[in-house]
Design a protein around this nucleic acid. Sequence first.
DNA 1: TTGAAAGCGCTAACAC
DNA 2: GTGTTAGCGCTTTCAA
Lengths: 336, 336
Amino acid sequence: MSKITIQQIADLAGVNKATVSRVINRSANISEKTREKVEAIMKEHNYVPNSIARGLAFNKTFTVGFYSDYTDKRAYANPFFYKVLQGIEEIVYNNDHMFLMMSDHVNKKSSSTFENVVSQHRVDGLIIPNTLLTEQNYDLLIKHNMPYVVTGENMLPKEGVPWVDIDNVQAGQVLTEHLIELGCRNIMIYAGGEAVARDKFLADRLKGYTETMKRNQLDISVIEHADVLKTLNLAKKSGKSERTGITGTRPDALICCTHEQLFEILDWERGNPMLSELALATFDNFPMSKYMTHPVHFVDIDLEMMGKQAAQMLFSLMNKETDVPKSISIHTRIGN
Amino acid sequence: MSKITIQQIADLAGVNKATVSRVINRSANISEKTREKVEAIMKEHNYVPNSIARGLAFNKTFTVGFYSDYTDKRAYANPFFYKVLQGIEEIVYNNDHMFLMMSDHVNKKSSSTFENVVSQHRVDGLIIPNTLLTEQNYDLLIKHNMPYVVTGENMLPKEGVPWVDIDNVQAGQVLTEHLIELGCRNIMIYAGGEAVARDKFLADRLKGYTETMKRNQLDISVIEHADVLKTLNLAKKSGKSERTGITGTRPDALICCTHEQLFEILDWERGNPMLSELALATFDNFPMSKYMTHPVHFVDIDLEMMGKQAAQMLFSLMNKETDVPKSISIHTRIGN
DNA sequence: TTGAAAGCGCTAACAC
DNA sequence: GTGTTAGCGCTTTCAA
């Protein structure tokens, strides 16, 4: 139970604990002699100041929080989600802070973990995914003057919400350009209608595609429903392109905006001769892609970088630095 | 900055803050009348006691830690690693504690995060993977009397180390039995020699296989190097089984003890007619397995359960409960 | 049943 | 430069 306190160090060094405190905090106005003496004693006894007590006095916790929703099996099952965490964690520890994970969870007192953490100042700042930044949570953060950064572009109709996100427009451009370089000319994009309307990142990827195709004077063809692909297949069989709503020439590439869409397509692949002639492309790399039955082109999204940037931004805000950018968009590149 | 304290609540209720404290802690010896009054005021002002200050007084932190190594890309890239976290987190929050993630990280003062957290009592208890429980860390935990639970079977030559792990012997049994039920009789297992000697979980899986085969009076064939499989292939071509060291009849199933081994095998698959006739099997499910070129049988390992059990065990230890089991082995079943 | 006061380990204003 | 003292928000003796 070796629980050595500042007082004991002070006694051992024959000084007042305030003096020890000054040494700890590298305060000025300390004689070289006593500083060295105190430091020696501290080292000898392996003394580390209790950060809880320190936090109480400083009104700080030296802790950064991350809010997540562990009932969201989709996020938790997604390895990329953790890439972000990894990036955050690295920065947090480099800044001598601790990292508190808090999941959405209502405890017995019927106040949420999030609310508790924020109102109790259990953390000095926190990172929150855009999907969890509700109006209510936003109000709480503002009310308690808690520094925060959002991962994913802010969707809340509020000004000045700091966020970090992948540049999805650029990702769409890069992927499309890559396919064009490979020789593809009739590039389709699978971007479900409702989903695009709901999720801005999908609209952005679509936008990147559209811009690039236009710039290269190629025809745009957006597929909103996988059913159209079946039709496409029939059209090919009969040598016609009727009812496809896309350009008459045969498509040679298909961009899927999400993994789910890609899987949907891959599920069809077996026994579908048309798809096997198509260059498939999507966003994000994923494990085992090389073992898939169909090779897939993709842009490599650096989510670890996203985590790092978010954490860096948070520390800037916590330190009340000036010139902190309102938002950061991270560029992507073709993977592998 | 609404930062309401116990004193303000006391003033508002016209009582001493000690009385408020007693209400908070459901202490006995409180008149129903004042309790209700105080509770009303607390509710009205949305008061939540500051757990930092509370911790200082109680000498507790209401926080549970998890130690990991974020430089271990293998763990961080493994979605199953996070299943464990998810399980832990659920239990931790159900017990009204916070969850602190700490990565192996040496900070500027050249003392590790782990050491800081333990010696400062930043957490009331912690969960640590067996791979990170070094002699040094163990000593630290003992010295500071810090409750802990190890995930994965304890490998340190110490008594009384509490751990939770998957029952790998049973997993090996279940998988082998499954293949037998499918009609396989000549089941090989790929278990690399050095790896088996190093990692007990591999030896356990092998043991489960061996026992089951023996019980069913089937011949055991352990492959230590993937090269043997190439030989096997040749043997098949020439109709002989020379130099394979395994039973003369043709193998109809292959158990891979790890994903890495499985992938190694799958890498060969293209153009290898022999492998395509083999039932492949491994441990752990993994995402996208259905999109792989070769169907794979597997046991479903419930790592979320493992996390839950570990956390539960930790709380038992923290609460100094009696009859806490020394270790827990979790059973598995065939997946899908 | 309640209040007053000391203390958890540390920092910070104010003296000297 | 260094010591003294009060205080961070809460709990817990000890009296009343």
